[in-house]
Amino acid sequence: MSRLYRDTGVVLRTYKLGEADRIVVLLTAENGKVRAVAKGVRKTNSKFGARLEPMSHVKVLLYRGRELDIVSQAESVESLAPMLASLDRASRGIATLEAVDMIAIERQPNRRLYEMLVGALRTIAAHPSPVVVPAFFWKLLAAEGFRPVTDRCVRCGEAGPLVAFDVGEGGTLCRACRQGTPISAPALALLNDILGGRLNEALAADESSATHEVASLATHAIEHHVERRLRAVAMFEGA
């Protein structure tokens, strides 16, 4: 049996290895999260060039190893150029990578996650709306089976008015049961747009206090789920 295999994937992150090599972590369509060594990739005359940078979407030929695979060939599926064209695109792209890296499991195929990531990166490249990353985080949680309750009080079932959101309870709360973070009506409407299939309307929203509210809740919720802090999200806020 040949140990060479083909797949398509997105580079989630890279680690330096030795003098000129890198370990590349890919989220692939068929094989889940894969860690592979790209030899000589840090040299200027490397055949891989910019193809194995974080956020790259590539077709790869991999050689299966015991611990780490080896990248034999790489070919771009989509250009990385738009992602590195502005700080907003780059930082938002990196924020999605970080969340996916935490959720994806090695060698466990998750085609849906791969497709969601590719979709999110395409959206960021085309139109880096401030809602893309939070929307992606909410969708990610929903896909993982942690879709929050947003149409009634998660505790007593009261239809409204809903005034707070608690990540531990997993949804919105009415005035009587309120705990967690207060949520404004516009923010709740935006959240319902994101989760209710009106993503395009949500992405068209201008930056406002509601988008900030939804964004900080999304980060909070995903951090609660993976039980780790996300580093990339906060870094460029205010920059």
Partner: peptide, 17 residues
């Protein structure tokens, strides 16, 4: 492009730039 390299192996981002 790095001097002494092959166009055939240049990646799209570098060649584009």
């Amino acid at each position: 492009l790095p001097v002494g390299g092959d166009l055939e192996y240049a990646d799209e981002l570098t060649l584009g730039r």
